[in-house]
Computed example of a mutant assay.
Amino acid sequence: MTRRETPAPVRLGRIGYLNVLPIYHPLETRAVDNDFVVESGPPAKLNTIMEAGGLDLSACSSIEYARRPERYLLVPDLAIGSCGPVQSVLLLSRVPLDRASKILVSAQTHTSAALLRLMLATRFGLRPDFETGDIRSRLAAGEPPQAFLAIGDEALRLRRLPDYPYALDLGSEWNAWTGLPFIFGVWIVRREAAAQLGPRMDRAVRTLLAAKAHGAASLPDYALLGEAQGILDAPSLRSYFRGLVYDLGPEEQEGLCAFYAKLAEAGAIPAAPRLEFYQLRDVVAA
């Protein structure tokens, strides 16, 4: 009799930023039991790995779904965004924004860079030049850019640089423009992995949603964890977490669809995709 092989664990992508701590900390501490193999990195890296088939289920830039909707399904009711100030996606400038002729953009972002280009051109009629690079190395080398887009923990750390008094919070500006939440990141399942893994993918998605529920009940604790990492003090981090959206309900979906429609109008994607969700089975096999 041949010995039964243990199935390979589901490969899960984790954005390496503080804002997803409420989702992943319950998994990492086993407060929510799981057997994920986790790959961590900035959104742009996870987009690339997911596209190449190196992950089964991952947090990704929301624009990654729009670029390849035929490859992915959205995890239901799980996202990362804001309905107002996001505090961690910021355009910072040494000069008034309408005078900024060149903007340095972090290579870690796809969605935020697309949103910034769209917003500056469509909302403000501005078309500065863009360059991609590492913001902190430029600052450390004494070569500060005229303006830069920072995301994630880097934005939280750099948001009050005295040499950059002009700031645009992209979450706040989107809400003022559309009246809707902005969804920076979504969780997606590769369609191929869903077909191959079957009930194991069901368990993986349910586990991820259980981690979200656990994290939502413990948000004040994550402010203390972030403070211990030296990012910001706990009161500032409590304000930060309160401003984040982790749901992908009707209003968040409307905001996501509005972003896709505007991208399509601007020619940044061929067409606005339909939102297609992973369908959980009523019964999960043991």
Rank of each mutant, 00 (worst) to 15 (best):
R238G: 07
E70N: 01
L55D: 04
G152R: 10
Y222T: 07
V186S: 06
S137I: 08
S62K: 12
L170S: 10
T6L: 09
V95F: 02
P144I: 07
G255R: 09
Y24D: 15
P181T: 12
A216M: 14
A121Y: 03
A285H: 10
A234S: 14
Y164P: 00
A286S: 09
S88R: 05
Y278S: 15
L168V: 10
A204R: 02
G255N: 08
D247E: 15
G54N: 11
S40M: 07
V32A: 06
E252A: 15
R4W: 08
S137M: 11
A217D: 12
L73E: 15
Y240M: 02
D56F: 14
S239N: 06
A204K: 03
L27W: 00
V205H: 08
L12Q: 12
I188Y: 02
A258K: 08
M119W: 05
L116G: 09
G41I: 02
V189F: 01
A114R: 10
L116E: 06
W177S: 07
A44L: 09
L244H: 07
A271Q: 09
G198M: 10
A141S: 15
L104V: 11
F259Q: 03
L90A: 12
L27Y: 04
P85T: 11
G185T: 08
L244K: 11
D233K: 11
D98K: 03
E51Y: 06
E28M: 13
R68S: 11
A286F: 06
G243W: 00
I80P: 05
A228P: 07
